[in-house]
Amino acid sequence: MLSRVADSIFWMSRYIERAENIARFVDATMTLTLDLPADDTAAWAELIASVGDPEDFAARYGSPSPATVLRYLTFDERNPNSILTTLARARENARCVRDAISSEMWEQANTFYLDVKGAAAQGRFGAMPHAFFAQVKLASHQFVGVTDSTMSHGEAWHFNRIGRLLERADKTACILGAERFNRATTSPAAASPSEMLIDDLDWSGLLKAASAHEMYRKKHGRIEPHRVFEFLILSREFPRAAHYCLLRCVESVHAISGTLPGTYTNPPEQRLGRLAAQLDYAGVEDILPPEVGGDARPFLTRLRSDLYAVGDAIAAAFFPS
């Protein structure tokens, strides 16, 4: 396969996954703020800090508000990580490799972008925002389903899967690193009833943002912060958990290179294998180490840095310019 084609397929998939994740996080924040005072914008500011560019946002919009954050993360074409911008890039990558993907994939990617662009132009977003974000998530799921059903599971399909799952693992770590979740794990046990209620809403919203609420409840029942971290980072079975994503990426990179599991012939295999092995033997005490007060952010920062290094290694090995 030409490196140019592999590169476009990788980023097509990654951008569509990014659009879905932004929709998840914005929708979850909207739901959360329904139960908070109208003038409480902390959740919106934290959302920008997690998945946006705070300096760029502040320069163009000033202080965060629901309306400005929604505009910035959804339809702002000057924001490289808005839903509209990422879908435009996904569509362009799909257009460049139409001969390597199925016609159904191209049609889904094109329709996905045009629907979001039409919503921006016609102002349909403001009336029913939750329905809009639900449609974004559904369109992304449809693209994954169409891909798995209509594309041969060869090299191109594996590059597509690696792009999607690296992005997914990164965004799972990103949202878990938000201050409010780590503040809740390190705060004293003696909290007021209102503070406990807000914490419960936060954790429930986080699980719903990852489509993990029902599966978590089936496994653990009561929502407990350390169990949420364990489930979304270390689960081998839940498809949005970082560990699950890495295990599937390891399978795909070996399929591309033709090497046996447990061996490596290039840096992507080495980095992915090492990172997956670290999570193989990690426990919740590694994510929430007592010596730093149970703060998960150092672990999550390292994880995201390692994921970036994997992406760079893949680009250097398979997409040389």
Rank of each mutant, 00 (worst) to 15 (best):
9 I>K: 05
14 R>V: 01
18 R>I: 10
21 N>P: 06
23 A>W: 03
25 F>E: 12
27 D>E: 14
29 T>G: 08
30 M>N: 14
31 T>M: 15
31 T>N: 14
33 T>P: 12
35 D>W: 11
51 V>M: 07
54 P>V: 05
55 E>N: 12
56 D>M: 12
61 Y>I: 05
63 S>R: 15
74 T>Q: 10
79 N>I: 01
80 P>W: 07
82 S>F: 04
83 I>P: 05
90 A>L: 06
94 A>S: 10
99 D>R: 15
100 A>V: 01
103 S>Q: 13
110 N>H: 11
129 P>V: 06
129 P>K: 05
132 F>A: 12
140 S>R: 04
141 H>Y: 04
143 F>A: 00
145 G>F: 03
152 S>A: 13
154 G>E: 10
155 E>V: 03
155 E>W: 01
156 A>Y: 13
160 N>A: 14
162 I>S: 02
181 F>C: 04
184 A>R: 02
186 T>F: 04
187 S>C: 04
202 D>C: 14
202 D>T: 09
207 L>F: 07
209 A>R: 02
209 A>C: 00
214 E>C: 06
229 F>P: 04
231 F>Y: 14
231 F>E: 10
235 S>L: 02
240 R>T: 01
247 L>A: 07
248 R>K: 15
249 C>K: 03
255 A>T: 07
262 G>D: 06
265 T>M: 09
267 P>G: 12
268 P>K: 14
280 D>V: 09
284 V>M: 10
291 E>F: 12
292 V>T: 15
300 L>M: 09
302 R>A: 00
308 Y>R: 14
